[in-house]
Design a protein around this nucleic acid. Sequence first.
DNA 1: GAGATATGTCAACAACGCTGACGTAAATAA
DNA 2: TTATTTACGTCAGCGTTGTTGACATATCTC
Lengths: 172, 172
Amino acid sequence: MPDAIPVLRSAKPGAEASAERPAYDLIELFFFAYRDFVSDPDRILDEYGFGRAHHRVLHFVDRQPGLTIAELLDILRITKQSLNRVLKELIEKRFIESRMGTSDRRQRLLHVTPQGHDLALKLAKLQTRRIARALTDLDSAAKESVTRYLLSLIDPDDRSHVERLVFGSAKV
Amino acid sequence: MPDAIPVLRSAKPGAEASAERPAYDLIELFFFAYRDFVSDPDRILDEYGFGRAHHRVLHFVDRQPGLTIAELLDILRITKQSLNRVLKELIEKRFIESRMGTSDRRQRLLHVTPQGHDLALKLAKLQTRRIARALTDLDSAAKESVTRYLLSLIDPDDRSHVERLVFGSAKV
DNA sequence: GAGATATGTCAACAACGCTGACGTAAATAA
DNA sequence: TTATTTACGTCAGCGTTGTTGACATATCTC
């Protein structure tokens, strides 16, 4: 019986804009999905004595060979002291190499070692498997919807920066 | 010039299943989106001397009045010691009330106070605003795609549990 | 009454954020 | 050339939030 009665869809008429019903579904699904999404790599990272912070550093250095410390700090939004703690371990354990900059010798250009690349790829594939499984339920247009949704959740100031980082150097 | 040449879409023919290209786009967008999504409430929580752990507890108690400790532990997947630390503060500061169970007097039934509800709602609306903004770019079908995608990212064992929690007690 | 269950608590520790201060080398401006 | 700024490293200390292990108490169930 569709539209038998014109139901008061958005609560009382007196309710103003601030009375919009919270999007509990998307808020909570985001929480649970992210929780499980990051939990996959944890088991493997444990074997190496690494944590999630190491994963993030390794991931972005693998993706952007030659990344500088300043650029990495900008991506991760943490302090250099926090970064240095985990980066030092990744270098000591030979997962990342730090080379002096060529044009500017104050910079450190970060690169993964073959061992570092293997681990980064292993972790990325784990997460890709979960993503692929989730996408099989959906049609091809849906993937673009998801991509655009996630991108739009990002702070507007950062969005183009992230776009370049994620989709490559191609000017968007 | 679509399909002018049948391009080798998935790399070399010798490549097996394990050679699937990692979904770097969705991996990284998920990271950045979640980072910004949880950052909104931080500013407000700071004013109350609360952190993200407090937020999560307050949120689920607000959503599920009468929640027990055991149920909350199951949702958050942390230890009771970790939970107790933040829950104690929320109770001391009168954002949550703990009432003795009626049928089972060992249980603690958790409820938000009016003050607790106000804060929970305020934070939920903040996050809702970001979500609403992201959804405006998309058509109505897209929201369902996003919902189903997030749900499918969750561990299969937990999925129906989360569905009940998120979409209400209605048997799905 | 015995044992299982729901919760609370003490103590110690680990990961990973933070601030603040200080040092060094290299690039750049004056 | 000297002065300043920039890029990075490091020491020290602290806060939040997760962990393990052990133990106490009240209550329910058998």
